[in-house]
């Protein structure tokens, strides 16, 4: 049996395997995007993070600028503390606004950063003050239904003052939610 042809074939075989693994790591996996060089870490507190998970992308203007590192619960304030790693190449002002958005109607959740106007930039270990919680679909739907129901009611008995007050309060709440 010819040794050299076997060596050649095994060589091709192993090379293919390594190439496939590299392809998986680079093209399919997040090895490249999760290790975007050096990062700095900032944290943000949210009252509700919805279903945000570690490794979720952090985007600004639709561009991935970092990743969620960890999510912990602060039992003194009953808030979620989300630590995010942002690429060193992208400095953000101190008054940056952090939102939790959903990709599409049912897609996964990500952190969106909207830059403010401050001169100073966020440093490693800083805290983002301005945050907005995740939109919980069930909450939104129930608010919508409640307000619809109470609107109908108030149409029927327009003299009931207390009821219409409640409706007003609800609808402002609903208006705050970004549709």
């Amino acid at each position: 049996m010819d040794r050299t042809t076997i060596d050649l074939w095994v060589g091709i075989f192993v090379a293919l395997g390594v190439a496939a693994l590299l392809g998986l790591a680079m093209k399919v996996g997040n090895l490249t995007s999760s290790k975007i060089g050096d990062t700095y870490s900032v944290s943000a507190a949210f009252e509700n993070i919805g279903s945000l998970k570690p490794h979720a992308p952090v985007k600004s203007a639709g561009v991935v600028v970092g990743r969620v590192d960890s999510i912990t619960f602060d039992s003194s304030k009953y808030e979620a503390i989300v630590k995010i790693n942002i690429d060193k190449r992208y400095p953000f002002p101190k008054d940056t606004f952090a939102n939790i958005y959903t990709a599409g109607l049912l897609g996964e959740q990500y952190v969106g950063l909207e830059a403010g106007g401050d001169e100073d930039t966020l440093k490693n270990g800083d805290k983002i003050i301005k945050t907005q919680d995740a939109v919980v679909l069930e909450k939104m739907i129930s608010q919508f239904l409640f307000s619809k129901a109470s609107e109908n009611k108030s149409d029927d008995k327009s003299d009931d003052g207390s009821n219409s007050k409640a409706t007003k309060a609800k609808s402002t709440e609903l208006g705050a939610a970004p549709f």
Partner: peptide
């Protein structure tokens, strides 16, 4: 989308 969701 693939890269965002497949963890190495």
């Amino acid at each position: 989308q693939m890269q965002a969701n497949v963890d190495f």
